[in-house]
């Protein structure tokens, strides 16, 4: 296992689209081991996508089980060829990125998604996700499509007039 170098802005390789994984072999699984070690090494990284370490295949890892306040999650997930088949709702949330050090911003993401993917052995996976975990997967799939969260950051001022109050006068 090894900690891999993370590409950072303005490296143009981060804008590259990643290709689907077709070979579910030991080489892929060894890479996933390195990717996970790299994620754990990153400061407070919840997720990571293969292209962030210069491997342009559709592989991401997310683990939303360690937030300060527990959120609905499916534990640590290795997602190969992930594909969102349904989106619903939207909300603003703060994001940062291993590839964009010392910058965070607000991004609008779908609150509920339906996700199809494969595991490292090529077995089919299917999830319904919400909130923070749905955000994580959307952020990571963006990397596979050559998109960074900085391309999606919106001003809080934008939200002032569009804010939807989910729970009136209570904990939001």
């Amino acid at each position: 296992m090894a900690i891999l170098d993370i590409l950072t802005l303005p490296d143009q390789a981060l804008k590259q689209e990643s290709a689907p994984v077709t070979e579910f072999d030991d080489e892929l699984r060894a890479f996933i081991g390195d990717l996970e070690e790299t994620r754990r090494n990153g400061p407070a990284a919840v997720g990571i996508a293969a292209p962030q370490v210069g491997y342009f295949r559709r592989v991401v890892i997310v683990d939303c089980s360690t937030t300060r306040k527990p959120v609905p999650n499916h534990g640590r997930l290795v997602l190969v060829n992930p594909e969102i088949t349904h989106w619903e709702g939207y909300e603003m949330g703060r994001e940062g990125c291993l590839s964009v050090p010392d910058y965070t911003g607000n991004v609008i993401r779908a609150t509920h998604i339906h996700l199809l993917a494969q595991d490292p052995y090529g077995h089919d996976l299917e999830f319904d996700m919400e909130g923070y975990e749905a955000r994580a997967v959307q952020h990571e799939i963006d990397h596979l499509d050559g998109m960074l969260f900085v391309d999606r950051v919106v001003s809080r001022r934008t939200d002032l007039f569009q804010r939807k109050v989910y729970q009136k006068g209570g904990k939001g």
Partner: peptide
């Protein structure tokens, strides 16, 4: 403030880093 008729929402910000 709430009792005074002001709508106040407090949310933890969990910044996603990925």
């Amino acid at each position: 403030l709430r009792l005074d008729g002001v709508d106040v929402n407090v949310n933890a910000v969990e910044t996603y880093i990925g």
